[in-house]
């Protein structure tokens, strides 16, 4: 099915375009808007962005495949990113990740059977001073204990 941004997001993209001297500069912000709406970047999304910004589809595809935050396949309703880089690892990120895997019954990179949660690992999220931490959708949860991880996961499962 062809993709298009909804009118509200499309107006936001119009406003974003005024910030830059080129249309190409709006490529990453436009892809973020599309992903907010669609959940992932499908070929249809790439085709739409390429038409909207007058860019070759190959350019847009090249951008999508370069950046880790663009989902190249469908993901769960919520995304849980556990930071596992050294400063977090020193403060127990391994335990947090292991706990999430056990509680959700999935491995990193997988989505729960009900499609609610995708569990992922992240490389350094700039929260080394408040480690261990995880990002849930657009929110940071820092100075985690396993009890708090449980609370967060329970809430996501119910929501």
């Amino acid at each position: 099915m062809p993709f298009a941004l909804n009118p509200e997001r499309d107006r936001e993209l119009d406003e974003i375009l005024t910030r830059y001297p080129t249309k190409m500069a709006a490529c990453i912000p436009a892809l973020h808007l599309c992903q907010d709406q669609n959940g992932w970047i499908s070929d249809e999304v790439i085709a739409w962005v390429s038409g909207r910004l007058d860019l070759p589809p190959a350019h847009v595809k090249g951008v999508v495949t370069f950046y880790t935050l663009f989902n190249q396949e469908p993901v769960g309703k919520h995304q849980v990113w556990v930071c596992r880089t050294l400063p977090c690892a020193l403060r127990g990120a391994g335990d947090v990740l292991g706990h999430c895997q056990k509680r959700l019954g999935i491995k990193e990179g997988e989505t729960t059977a009900d499609g609610k949660i995708t569990l992922r690992t992240a490389e350094c999220l700039a929260s080394c001073g408040t480690a261990p931490m995880m990002q849930v959708d657009k929110e940071y949860h820092e100075n985690l204990t396993l009890e708090e991880v449980d609370k967060i996961l329970d809430k996501l499962r119910q929501g």
Partner: peptide, 24 residues
């Protein structure tokens, strides 16, 4: 302006490419 998850974009010329809407 926002990136999209790439440590390399902290390198100044990579950051500029990313700002212009390219691969970083």
């Amino acid at each position: 302006h926002t990136g999209a998850g790439a440590y390399i974009c902290g390198e100044e010329t990579s950051l500029l490419n990313s700002l212009e809407g390219r691969r970083g």
